[in-house]
Design a protein around this nucleic acid. Structure first.
Length: 588
RNA sequence: GUUGCCGUGGUGUAAUUGGAUAACAUGCCACCCUCCGAAGGUGGAGACUUGCGAGUUCGAAUCUCGCCGGCAACACCA
């Protein structure tokens, strides 16, 4: 049975003195390594051959010019793991490490009364600004918004879980030339009718109507352009009409978020327009810093290292030839706002990979301008595209994009039908609620469980599969545990004595102890799939465990131990799923 | 053209960031419900060993270089 696969590389928050089991072993081992080569990394990893393995000996041996096995022997002779673990040398110089049963048992026992299951709270909470979701006002939320929304929310929840202060920023598209057209269309429809259309979430019809009017009617085009000028000039009536569009859209987005169980609120909506007043300052300050250049009438910064298709320096266009501001100016203003006013220690932009170059340039310019200190971690959390069956990117223009709510509704229907077929003993309303939880789990887990960078083909059948490595399977594993615990009734677990006498319970125990490392690993790489993999691995060990270890039919201390393992596993699953934004129902 | 991301059993993915015999799911085959939930479990076949070819070293899916293939970005739309 494989050991736990997770360990943190670097913590993005200060490490609690009482670290995870992995951290304790790694720290003790590092002392021995440090005596040979200062600062040497033991390279402690989970192992299929032992509880852990340390791979760092070979590197140390090379640095010292000594035979690896000799170095390994020295470490074994001088280690400081008494009472914690035993070490054996294997192969060319690997160290196989087995935890002392008493230590393992006490580590596990300490989790029983710990609501956080050993996951340390940040002693000095960091402020983490997470930019995610970012739909467009007066446009339908479609499948293209799924990844940013789901990944961003999982990161937000996980950062909160470790005690960091999360400021979510929903950078909605609420500004720009299309709004002239949209406002004119709103007037043509009549405010009441427009509001009615928008409030039922029929944004596609509205937007396409506006688009059609714009394409077909020259007079409408003229009015639209004039309206843009009014909007930018701050004309009160125009701003009022614009507000209607924004408010209606935000209200609709909130419905979608509620349906997806995403934590974003209207307060998190800080759209492009929010930065309008800061744009002139951005240009003026860049100019004062001498970074601004005039190019074809546009005011640009040319950060080093970026070239266009002809090998010429690539500009970040801050102000357009027509004196309007580009989105680069907005993004720069947002960086400044987040650093200066929000005091961000960390900024994550959960935005699709096609914008890598843009953000690389924005960050580079912000660094050069001194607006983004080196102490602030700033990362573009990219993700791959959702592809159609033809393996091409879903296009917004195609008109064939899947509405997010329709996707969810279909998933809910299928989950509902599955519950009916299964004869789940529930009234209709709770059954529908349960179906909703399952559908969200299916969709979110499908999105979160693969490495972010990869593209994936949108395949409803695969997303909704309730077998194997899926969200519903994890929910099922949890519900099954809860069922066992319910049947067991009130049992005092606080005084449990763990013996972990067989391989499946030992393997399960190791996995339970790796929970803090799994969370750390996820946050370290902004990689939700690592937590998914951990939870799925845990669930699999679980089923192996109670294949081998009947719980309710056991007696005495054995029964208490097994119940305690079930309790720990259930709580770990629930906490982990919650960190991903997935509900853990009591029964299914 | 330049730059970036990606290429792993039929399919979908993972691999603790350079570690030991490449793991899991799905699909397929064979078993398993008088036994705590079969949305489950057990076993088997499936990779001429990670697109191809070199290199770096004790050791490469992982790093370097060059090809091949897919996708994306590349001047005023975000």
């Amino acid at each position: 049975m494989a050991g736990s696969r997770f360990r943190p590389r670097t913590r993005t928050w200060e490490t609690d003195p009482m670290g995870s089991t992995y951290e304790i072993v790694a720290e003790r081992l590092a002392r021995s390594f440090d005596r040979l080569v200062s600062g040497a990394d033991p390279v402690l990893r989970a192992s299929e051959r032992a509880d852990f393995q340390a791979n760092g000996v070979m590197a140390v041996a090379k640095a010292l010019g000594r035979p690896p096995r000799e170095v390994a022997a020295e470490i074994v002779a001088t280690h400081e793991l008494d009472g914690i673990a035993t070490i054996a040398i294997a192969g060319p110089g690997f160290l196989n490490i087995e935890l002392e049963p008493a230590f393992l048992a006490s580590q596990l026992a300490s989790l029983v009364t710990d609501e956080r299951l050993g996951l340390a709270l940040a002693p000095a909470p960091r402020t983490v600004v997470i930019d995610y979701s970012a739909p467009n006002v007066a446009k339908e939320m479609h499948i293209g918004h799924l990844r940013s929304t789901v990944i961003g929310d999982a990161l937000a929840r996980s950062e909160r879980l470790v005690g960091n202060r999360v400021i979510a920023r929903n950078h909605v598209g609420d500004w720009g030339t299309p709004f002239g057209m949209l406002i004119e269309y709103l007037l043509d429809l009549g405010e009441d009718r427009a509001i009615a259309e928008l409030s039922i979430g029929d944004l596609n019809t509205f937007y396409q109507g506006a688009r059609a009017a714009f394409d077909a009617d020259e007079a409408f085009q003229r009015r639209s352009r004039a309206r843009v000028v009014l909007l930018q000039g701050g004309d009160p009536e125009t701003r009022r009409l614009w507000r209607i569009l924004v408010d209606q859209s935000v209200a609709y987005f909130s419905q979608v978020y509620a349906k997806l169980d995403v934590t974003l609120t209207p307060e998190d909506v800080v759209g492009e327009s929010f930065y309008n007043d800061a744009l002139e300052g951005v240009v003026a300050d860049l100019d004062a810093l001498g970074l601004l250049e005039d190019s074809d009438g546009a005011r640009c910064v040319f950060p080093p290292g970026f070239t266009n298709r002809d090998g010429e320096p690539l500009p970040l266009i801050v102000q357009k030839r027509d004196e309007g501001f580009g989105y680069a100016a907005t993004d720069l203003a947002a960086v400044r706002d987040r650093v200066d006013r929000l005091h961000a220690d960390e900024m994550l932009y959960v935005v699709g990979a096609p914008q890598v170059q843009h953000f690389a340039m924005v960050f580079a310019v912000a660094r050069r301008a001194g607006w983004l200190p080196d102490t602030v971690r700033c990362e573009h959390v990219t993700f791959g595209s959702v592809l159609g069956p033809d393996r091409k990117m879903y296009k917004t223009r195609s008109g064939e994009t899947v509405k997010l709510v329709e996707l969810l509704d279909e998933a809910i229907e299928r989950a509902y039908d599955a519950l009916v077929e299964r004869g789940t003993d529930l009234e209709d309303a709770p059954r529908r609620e349960l179906a909703t939880q399952i559908a969200r789990a299916a969709i979110k887990y499908a999105d979160l469980s693969t490495e972010r960078q990869r593209d994936y083909v949108f395949d409803l059948n695969r997303m909704l599969a309730f077998e194997g490595d899926t969200g519903p399977y994890l929910q099922y594993a949890h519900a099954r545990l809860r069922s066992i615990l319910r049947r067991a009734g009130e049992v005092e677990l606080a005084t449990v004595d763990f013996t972990l006498a067989n391989a499946p319970s030992h393997a399960l125990a190791l996995s339970l102890l790796a929970w803090p490392d799994a969370v750390a690993s996820m946050l370290d790489g902004a990689a939700p799939h690592r937590l998914c993999t951990y939870l799925f691995d845990l669930a699999q060990r679980l089923t192996a465990f109670y294949e081998a270890c009947p719980v309710l039919s056991a007696e005495g201390a054995v029964r208490v131990e097994r119940l305690a393992l079930c309790d720990l596993a259930a709580r770990t699953l629930a906490l982990g799923l919650d960190a991903l934004g997935i509900a853990a129902p009591e029964r299914m």
